[in-house]
Amino acid sequence: MKTQMNSLILRTTGHFLLPLLLIFSIFLLLRGHDEPGGGFIAGLVAAAAIALYLFSMGIKSARQVLWVDPRNLFGIGLTLAVLSGVPAIFYGQAFFTSQWWPIYLPPFGTLKLSTPLFFDIGVYLVVVGSVLTIVLTLAEAEG
């Protein structure tokens, strides 16, 4: 089986779907703390977007559009997630206690900067990295 599907419709829509789905995944990621969403789901959406791109454009262009090795993404995400637990210790609290640093930005409202946000971004990257590692490994094995 070839990994690239020979379908005109898929190839045409693939270009437009990729940015749309990636934006949607970031929307899900940022919405996640109080409402349905979060790093895991968002990461799956992003990984699915790139997997779709892989099927429509072939493995080479998928690697190009990704520009980093997914394993690096995994490592950076895991580092971020682990580090997000550390700031609490400077406030004398247990690891992974949530810290909130709300920043007031006049035209937009309040930006709720917090360690759970960084943890979620870390999870997002880990999920994207690990799913794409698996998908790309299998796709390359198929040739």
Binding site: R71, G75, V82
Partner: peptide, 12 residues
């Protein structure tokens, strides 16, 4: 965990 993550980030 941290050292594993950082050495993954230095994949190459």
């Amino acid at each position: 965990l941290l050292f594993g993550a950082v050495s993954l980030a230095f994949w190459r």
